[in-house]
Design a binder for these strands. Structure first.
Lengths: 253, 253
DNA sequence: TGTCGTGATCTGTGATCACAGTTAGGTTGG
DNA sequence: CCAACCTAACTGTGATCACAGATCACGACA
């Protein structure tokens, strides 16, 4: 699950003051979970975020507000809000008088992004390892199994990309630091188009690649509760993928 | 200068192809800096960002789109875009059916933010120290002098807050990592309201406080080109401020 | 005196329209 | 045949209107 930012709704339970029911029994109203009013703009934002992280939108691809609105069956307004948010995150960019497009990273930008990812995601892995539960490790292992299955032939790039994302974020969420996850998903939003567009085009990288061994080392480190080793495994995972991208992908300038 | 995200405008100089003027002399049009088509929404965004970082908007304070629009002399539309962007960064939050307000951090959220700042800003300080030039160190020292002057009595809280911000970002920008600066300014956007609102209310903390000694250690480390010491000085600066906040400020829950 | 109902007024959200600017394609003049 | 112009379609931006929902204050009832 890609860190869909939680709706920021404070529960507040304005329904029925405590003990309002007769005989002191809890009212049924105390259990209804204040159905969240997800706005249309948020839905569009989530849709575009998923497309970006999954690499289904290629770098340099141009988007049209009206086109997207029509494709999603909504007005132009929610799309505008979504694009505005994503542009603020630099996950999209609006050219001066032109269209909005998904940014093309320069080599320098990609390298900077990778260095930041090593620091931030490495930290997240380390902290997660300190407090992760056995159940959470099992979830990570489950995503790893799905990743392996998707990497076998015939390879299923889309499923592999999704499983890889789920694996990483299952780990990060174990750290219990929501703001940190928010930061990481922003990083993935920027790097996703190149990383996963490539994985989509070269599925052969999946099988026997560096990801499987890095993931195995990561799981072993988790089971040993070895934060430093977990960080190291993650660093190797990210570094290997980045090196592959630098060799093969088209980077600007 | 608070990392006002650059307008992302590719210069591109669509005015006058090179050498279009007679005699090969440079045309005056080549020097006009392609007046950046700063959109109205971006201007409002920058305005609100500055207000948040400076702590001029208190946590829990409610904003009204129409009110802000009227105050800034623009329509409701640009304000809407600005709030949308800031809400995406969680620098503002929109309550389900209510107004938009500046978030009130819980103690847990504030501690998480501080831990992340230690990692990210510590990394930035370390990297900056490796490549900083003498001229850039002089700029940092200049901001430190301004900070000291503003801390003397009579203390000028607003100036001190600004000088402190300029000092930190002058250091971070020396690292030459734009995305990193973007991340850090997002962190400041969240922490600004509590940190600087407090400094505004308790100016006595400024003089003889921990900030001056931490800043002195930081400058000394910069001049020795000692990355680890620079990081350590910054960590102490952030930690001391955070401890003070935890003792005095009102944090939710 | 305390509590609930009720209406006026505010909120953000979404839709529609108008506009300046740019792009692309077709046509005309050389 | 090539280049330049010119028109038509499309772009994001901003404004205005309409609407559902929530808040708040006032008044009536118990």
């Amino acid at each position: 699950m890609v860190a869909r930012v939680q709706p920021s709704v404070a529960p507040q339970s304005r329904l029925a003051s405590p003990g309002a029911g007769k005989l002191g029994e809890v009212s049924a109203l105390d259990e209804v979970g204040s159905l969240q009013h997800e706005t249309l703009g948020e839905r569009v934002t989530g849709e575009l975020r998923a497309l970006l992280i999954a690499g289904r939108l290629a770098p340099g691809e141009k988007l049209s507000l009206r086109r997207v609105a029509e494709a999603l069956g909504v007005s132009m307004m929610p799309v505008r809000e979504a694009v505005s948010r994503l542009a603020a995150d630099k996950a999209l960019e609006v050219l001066p008088g032109r269209a909005v497009r998904v940014p093309v990273l320069t080599l320098a930008q990609f390298r900077e992004l990778t260095r930041i990812r090593l620091v931030v995601e490495g930290f997240a892995a380390e902290e997660a390892t300190k407090v992760i539960t056995d159940a959470q490790i099992a979830v990570v292992a489950q995503h790893e199994a799905a990743f392996l299955a998707a990497a076998k032939d015939p390879p299923d790039p889309a499923a592999a990309v999704g499983a890889n994302r789920d694996l990483h974020f299952a780990l990060y969420e174990a750290a219990g630091m929501p703001s940190l996850i928010e930061m990481i998903s922003r990083l993935w939003l920027k790097a996703g188009p190149i990383l996963n567009l490539d994985m989509r085009h070269e599925p052969k990288r999946l099988d026997g690649g560096s990801a499987v061994v890095a993931h195995a080392q990561l799981l072993a480190a988790l089971r040993r509760r070895d934060p430093a080793a977990a960080r190291q495994a993650l660093v190797e995972d990210i570094s290997a993928a980045a090196e592959h991208i630098e060799r093969t992908a088209r980077l600007a300038e």
